[in-house]
Write a protein that binds this DNA or RNA. Sequence first.
DNA 1: ACCTGAACACCGTTCAAGT
DNA 2: ACCTGAACACCGTTCAAGT
Lengths: 217, 217
Amino acid sequence: MGKLTARAIVERALEIGDAEGLDAVTIRRLAADLDVTPMALYWHFKNKDRLLVGMADHLVAGFAPAPADDRSWERRLRDLVEGLIRVLRGHPCARQVLEQVDQSEVPGFLAVWDQALGLCRAAGFSVEESCMISKYLLQSAVAIADAPMHFDAGRTPAEIDEIVRRKRLGLESLSADAYPNLVAMAGPMAGSMDPALYDSFGVDLVLSGIEALAARR
Amino acid sequence: MGKLTARAIVERALEIGDAEGLDAVTIRRLAADLDVTPMALYWHFKNKDRLLVGMADHLVAGFAPAPADDRSWERRLRDLVEGLIRVLRGHPCARQVLEQVDQSEVPGFLAVWDQALGLCRAAGFSVEESCMISKYLLQSAVAIADAPMHFDAGRTPAEIDEIVRRKRLGLESLSADAYPNLVAMAGPMAGSMDPALYDSFGVDLVLSGIEALAARR
DNA sequence: ACCTGAACACCGTTCAAGT
DNA sequence: ACCTGAACACCGTTCAAGT
């Protein structure tokens, strides 16, 4: 029997969240899954918010930012974003978790943030600009990682098709007068898009904005 | 005595959410505020999720996108984003609400989305690219509108100062070895930045990325 | 059509107590 | 140090009933 440890609790919580959504992660449900009393969890986490912070930290814990080297800041910033996306991809509930916690209380997230800040400064941005850009960058990475076509975890291709199909039908059945473009582009909007292309285009979009601003100064 | 109507419920819900955060918006609490039984609300909204959709729609309802004219797509896209930001600014809980609902079920949001899609197509992007860009654009607008320095509603300048101060202290007290940049830039990171500059820089950042990609094709 | 009353199956959290 | 039991103050929601 594995011991009840903070790590075991967080991992079980992420399993539940990934499989059934973050709403299913409940102190009582989690305790039941761990064969323990709900109050047992309160010894390891002072309240549910701290548990969520623990979950968030576990999400990015596997992500060690590369040490400084002689690559360009553009290259390093891109690697940072792509690395973060790759790590978050492993957990369907990543975005929900990171939305619920104060990210400045998550050590692993602060590490990525710090790295982004340094790269922005290296790119020649002011302190204020670097703050904005780094926040924006991390937020975009989380959003890209949560792309609609990446709920693959535990679902069969047939199930994914069904979800996409229903989404598309919902869009197609809108008023073509009120939303002409949405109706016309229902297919791609619903998420039937090549994932690899989605990712690289998303990262391009975010980084090209930063690079354009850097070039302008 | 105002009658109990869907609109009155939504407006009261937004008041509570703006003043005390979305967590305070509870069926029971809301009913008590409206001097009515909790179950009364279920006649107007089939469940809490539909109420949230109603709140989200009310947020953007005041936002009528400009009709097509002869301005450039860059100009019109920028006006769209700035307009959306301006409307969301009025409600501190806007981001929380828009995060919790499926945005494709919010008519007012679909209208903005449709407009963004049309402008992306006009810019020469493919259908797939337009879908990504428009999603990204709206998401960024919501994020910018929710900027940390804009929780002004109902709070005195002294209270804001206190919040910013505590946030800054939290960052400054981090390990300078682990997070050198965060510690060094604690002040601006905590949110003591000029709001107008924050907004315009944020919009610039997002739009310059789109424009750079458009120019590249 | 519009609202109430009572009930059900849940929550997070505290506090004293056990080992 | 680590966990349990019982209790408190909440939730969202259903269902039958009132007007």
